[in-house]
Design a protein around this nucleic acid. Structure first.
Length: 229
DNA sequence: GTACAGATTGAG
DNA sequence: TCAATCTGTACT
């Protein structure tokens, strides 16, 4: 999608993201998902926004970039949250991508665990072991394999799991989706009617007082990949 | 230097 | 309902 898709008003962009396709180039293949759930965060007035009162820190400064840039951060010490900036340079507005309908993965029919282990675990374990400075062999037990299996073969029906599915992390901070060769957005001609969009309050922002109630979470009606229910 | 909460998740 | 897990931020 071009720049002028992302620079429109944030609530318009948020709704229009539903039915668009995220394409992620990874290890020579395309990981693709249709966006089915999003949330808008509109600073500086929105108390749920990290840019409330115009706050700027090294963590949130990507929110202020012109529409189309990635704002990604870690929550609860372990989950990445994938946001796309909207509006113009200096306006801290963005859309959190909360769920995808996977396109090129066989959902419900994951690869054989043994096959998965051969394909993915060794490199993943290498990286993890290096990070934690622990002996590689000591980690080759059932629970570790299961844990990695969950991380690598995941249904992206929540904001944290979606980042695992797309294989993205902090290295994508500030990435421009209009120009990137690693991740971008496509319109594949799917039409989403207004009547197919549900608006609800946003999830997990109970601290945001009167901003808890604004209906800035948008989901595709009856889509089974939407988080919560 | 140190305390603490958080746009989540899966297990029990 | 609970705990895993760790970074950014706001304090002292």
């Amino acid at each position: 999608m071009p720049r002028n898709f992302y620079t429109r008003p944030t609530l318009v962009v948020a709704k229009d993201l539903l039915g668009k396709f995220i394409v992620r180039k990874w290890r020579g293949r395309d990981i693709v998902g249709e966006i089915v759930e999003v949330e808008a965060y509109i600073g500086p007035h929105d108390k749920a926004s990290h840019a409330y009162k115009g706050k700027i820190t090294p963590r949130n400064k990507a929110e202020y970039l012109i529409g189309g840039h990635i704002y990604i951060y870690l929550v609860y010490g372990m989950y990445w949250q994938f946001n796309i900036s909207t509006s113009f340079e200096g306006k801290p507005e963005c859309v959190l991508i909360r769920a995808l309908e996977p396109i090129n993965e066989k959902v419900g029919n994951p690869p054989d665990v043994g096959e998965f282990h051969k394909t993915f675990c060794h490199s993943a374990l290498d990286a993890e072991s290096r990070r934690k400075k622990i002996n590689l062999d000591s980690r080759l037990c059932g629970n570790d394999i299961k844990r990695l299996y969950r991380r690598f073969h995941v249904v992206p029906n929540g904001p944290g799991k979606l980042c695992n599915y797309l294989k993205i992390d902090k290295s994508f901070y500030g990435e421009d989706m209009v120009k990137s060769g690693k991740i971008w957005l496509e319109d594949r001609g799917l039409k989403v009617k207004k009547s197919e969009i549900i608006a609800t309050k946003r999830i997990g922002i109970d601290y945001a007082q009167e901003w808890v109630r604004v209906p800035w979470r948008f989901c595709l009606k009856n889509n089974k990949f939407v988080s919560k229910k």
